[in-house]
Design a protein around this nucleic acid. Structure first.
Lengths: 169, 169
DNA sequence: AGCTCCCGGTTGACGTATCAACCAAGCAGC
DNA sequence: GCTGCTTGGTTGATACGTCAACCGGGAGCT
């Protein structure tokens, strides 16, 4: 930790630029998805993960790991999604806890929403930055993430996991 | 809008890198502030704006403009903050609606929290990127923001407002 | 003046996030 | 086979955000 924590004006401006973008981008993407497809960003994230999984089916633990959500948030949210018929909880053959299963309605929902969402991400982010800036930007994001991870658990330098194509998160 | 909305693998990875960082960074900063100072990110934002204003006092409209919050969110949140004694609503001499006034407790709260928050932002973001990357990164953020703004209201290219130093937002 | 419309702000209802408390398998040790 | 701990999941309370409905004081018109 530096002795002088304060931010100078340039740093301040940079930080606020990020905050501002972050807020606008989040709001835009999620409100659009809500309006057009009746899905929240949280719903979408769950659906993406399930749709990428083996048979549209995962254990709660895996889901928690994949989304990095708190168990309690996950449980609550799954309950709500279950009530809306997007997922179901099916007794698991292998594990002790019921699996989360993507329903047909759930699969239909994400199939409907994904193209529009991808188009949004492309129009508002990917295409705005262009390939080069995009790559640099992502690199910077990973650096920050690494710093975050490092601070959280000093020991155990865990290697990162791979990513496969699919609907944009 | 492009005909092929889908994201290729590199784009996908970049986007997810951003999402991941965004989430971790937000959670880290806000949970720390909550834990150590009993302030949410929202509380902090209001306090920063008020503390930068003339006499720790602003009209609700100005606050809404500064934070870009919805009026309803602002109203609700101010009610909660008022209940906790961080702000008060004082009848305004100039305007028709009561001003929002930073209380002594509110000022004390942000004075306590700001240094730690600034240190966090520095340690987890500013110093991780370094001056050059930071500048580039911020530039990219502004580009995305501009795209967002442009899409929202096609006409009226409004010039941006200046920013002054103070506690980090 | 009296009327209407508009606009900034508040309210209520509902979905969501977080925290802490709880619960119920599984497993260790005896 | 019981005792008790660990672990993964659920529940309830409370704070937060959003939407839509509502309210009340001007401004403008006649």
């Amino acid at each position: 930790m530096p002795d002088e924590p304060w931010l100078d004006e340039a740093e301040q401006r940079a930080w606020r630029s990020y905050l501002h973008m972050q807020r606008l981008l989040t709001v835009r993407l999620s409100s659009r998805m809500q309006r057009d497809f009746d899905l929240s960003a949280a719903d979408y994230e769950i659906l993406v993960n399930l749709s990428e999984a083996a048979h549209g089916r995962m254990g709660p633990g895996e889901l928690a790991e994949a989304t990095q959500w708190e168990k309690s948030r996950l449980s609550h949210h799954l309950t709500r999604m279950e009530r809306r018929g997007l997922v179901s909880r099916e007794p698991s053959r292998t594990g002790r806890y019921p699996d989360v299963q993507l329903t047909e309605a759930g699969r239909a929902a994400i199939r409907r929403a994904a193209p529009a969402h991808a188009a949004d991400v492309r129009a508002l982010f990917v295409d705005v930055l262009g390939p080069q800036h995009l790559a640099r930007f992502a690199e910077d994001c990973r650096a920050v993430t690494a710093a975050l991870d490092a601070e959280q658990r000093p020991p155990a330098p865990a290697p990162a996991a791979g990513q496969e194509p699919g609907p944009p998160a």
